[in-house]
Design a protein around this nucleic acid. Structure first.
Length: 359
RNA sequence: UGGGGCGUCGCCAAGCGGUAAGGCACCGGAUUUUGAUUCCGGCAUCCGCAGGUUCGAAUCCUGCCGCCCCAG
């Protein structure tokens, strides 16, 4: 186990804390100080809020710097807009164009936060990079693994599945053993300026939640509409662009039917959104690609639990490796809302052992 | 222009003389570091139109309008 509260092990250790100006990362910073680490505040400038909507959002860098000043720790902001655009935003747009539903947070964690930022923090002399994620890190044999947070309601282990051993060995998650309530209490007790901030929002680079508008203006996505087609083949309506939809979605179809209709599939080339009654969402299995493992790379089928989206309660599955990079996942019971582009994350007890991207 | 059926919220649909169910859609809110889902709340003073019968009609009668089907 990594030293957590034993001061002896911490002497001289430097931790960079990724600060967002929010409650969680601010409290994490305060806790690290309390635990005796030498703490450096760092943050990333990822997206210029130049478009109208985003500019109304408080400046993350300024907020983070404000908190760092209050805690009296050094603070560094890194210019990472280029990397963010190429590693996160562009792929995000490409996924939507392909009729898939991306999860930019996972990608950002792997390449920006625990990629570029971790690297830059190391240059500042940091031994670890800490974040305000609700997750824990643990050692299992020769492997570092992400562990679910004690506050199961806030658990963010799902977003961290893609981190490799080199990244995990540098991680600290000071909030993993705390509840959100406790974190807020600490923020209040320390009089942190962010104590009363509300919970976070949508995709960080689309603060107003209008991701369709974002795709149109920032990614110049082709806004051509198409048919909404029932699984029976009957055309039920028109849509303004398939990228407005995601598999499993119910709201926004605008179709009066005898039952609720859900998006069952998206056929990007044909510009069709396929809809059907709820039972059409049931899937017995799925295939994941781009797998990463925090266990010895599996060579044969094994049982574990799986989450197919954030906040999904994991369900029992059989995982059958298809080479080292892909795998076939079979559910014990059919699941609804298997969405291409989302991550399937594998758990063993409360630990993340790997995951991949749903094809 | 012979016969039969039907017209209730944007869609589907209960009601059959006692003063407009429900589902879908939509809107609002809760939940949420992805997109969703889910949950809670709202949503026809009015039943194709016009008359009539009745204490009282969406429900009965008459006429008109509009659909659909079967016939030649």
């Amino acid at each position: 186990m990594r030293p957590f509260l034993s001061v002896e092990g911490l002497v001289g250790k430097t931790v960079a804390i990724a600060m967002s100006g929010g409650v969680d990362s601010s409290v994490a910073a305060a806790l690290l100080l309390e635990q005796g680490y030498h703490v450096i505040g760092v943050t990333m400038r990822l997206w210029s809020g130049c478009s109208g909507a985003a500019s109304s959002n408080p400046d993350v860098v300024a907020q983070a710097g404000h908190v760092a000043a209050q805690l009296n720790i050094p603070f560094h902001a890194f210019e990472l807009r280029e990397d963010f655009r190429h590693r996160v935003v562009d792929p995000f747009c490409r996924e939507y164009l392909a009729g898939r539903t991306p999860n930019p947070c996972v990608v950002c964690n792997k390449y920006l936060k625990f990629g570029r930022l971790l690297e830059l923090a190391g240059r500042l002399g940091a031994d670890y990079l800490a974040t305000g994620h609700y997750a824990a890190i643990t050692r299992s044999g020769a492997y570092w693994q992400v562990q679910k947070a004690v506050d199961r309601n806030k658990d963010q282990s799902y977003f961290l599945f893609a981190l490799n051993q080199q990244q995990l060995e540098k991680c600290l998650f000071p909030l993993g053993r705390l509840t959100k309530q406790a974190v807020r209490a600490i923020a209040a007790k320390q009089n942190l300026v962010v104590a009363e901030k509300s919970e976070s929002q949508d995709i960080c680079f689309i603060p107003d939640g209008d991701y369709a508008g974002f795709l149109q203006t920032q990614c110049r996505i082709d806004a051509a509409g198409g048919d909404i087609v029932h699984v029976s083949g009957r055309v039920l309506g028109r849509h303004p662009g398939a990228y407005h939809y995601t598999v499993g979605q119910r709201k926004g179809l605008g179709i009066g039917w005898t039952e609720p209709l859900y998006v069952v599939a998206i056929d990007a080339p044909k510009r069709q959104v396929i809809v059907g009654e709820r039972q059409w969402l049931d899937r017995r299995d799925l295939t994941v690609a781009g797998c990463s493992w925090n266990i010895p790379t599996p060579m044969q089928a094994f049982a574990c639990n799986c989450r197919i989206r954030y906040r999904h309660t994991e369900v029992p599955v059989m995982v059958e490796p298809l080479g080292s990079d892909r795998a076939e996942v079979t559910f014990a019971d059919p699941q609804q809302g298997v969405t291409p582009g989302q991550a399937a994350v594998f758990y063993q007890q409360d630990r993340v052992i790997g995951g991949g991207w749903i094809e």
